[in-house]
Design a protein around this nucleic acid. Sequence first.
DNA 1: GTAGGAGTTGACATCAGTGTCAGGTTCAAG
DNA 2: CTTGAACCTGACACTGATGTCAACTCCTAC
Lengths: 127, 127
Amino acid sequence: MRIGELARDTGVSERSLRYYETQGLLRSERTPGGQRTYGDWAVDRVIRIQALYAAGLNSRKIAQLLPCMRDTDGGPSERATPQLVDELGVERDRINRLIADLIRSRDVLDEVIESASELLDVGLGVG
Amino acid sequence: MRIGELARDTGVSERSLRYYETQGLLRSERTPGGQRTYGDWAVDRVIRIQALYAAGLNSRKIAQLLPCMRDTDGGPSERATPQLVDELGVERDRINRLIADLIRSRDVLDEVIESASELLDVGLGVG
DNA sequence: GTAGGAGTTGACATCAGTGTCAGGTTCAAG
DNA sequence: CTTGAACCTGACACTGATGTCAACTCCTAC
């Protein structure tokens, strides 16, 4: 598939897909005319890249990480260096803390939403 | 307490604390000389602000949200407007998706870390 | 009162991913 | 061929929280 379709399938902008390529996160074949071509594996990979971005990893770490995970596009290919393992451990701990914070924040939102809804119900005469 | 202590207690920079104030997230008393003074309640509030930032809310939404939650500094004070409740619902859904993504990403990290450690063990002759 | 650490405001920089526009090329369809 | 949608590169802007620096003032301890 070409870049437009990949963008549509993943919900990621063409701009970002090209950016990922410059960062070494996403490879593409080229048509004789120079247009990017992707296999089906690209969809999963892009989604995974997005998830890692969302987890707060930057391009550099994602680029190091990707070849160490088994993927539809090739295989496990590379293994993580001890230093990378260290860094990933730090990231994992950060993510765990982040998840905990997120759950708390979500619960706060829930509480506010809930109590506002109750007030609304009262206001509507439901209570 | 003054700003330096609050920064130390919360791990948030003075710069950010002043920024929060400009955004209407954090009030302060002032000494006659103009220096900021905070009560103990500020520590919890700052930590909560940070958590909401981490959850991807921007200053504006946090500012709307804060007065709607019960807090050590005053009370429930205000109630959420229907429109705000709507917006918060959207945020909550986003946060829930984010949490799910984060868990997946963390598991990916765990897997890479795990398998690298195993390889390392083998390399060390443990296996 | 004075030294110096702590605080003040204001301005500018940064980061990193993404949006967007310009000017040109490629590809598929008629 | 030609037309128009899709794609290419390159450049610039933005966002928004935070870092940093400058020039100045306040507060505490001596």
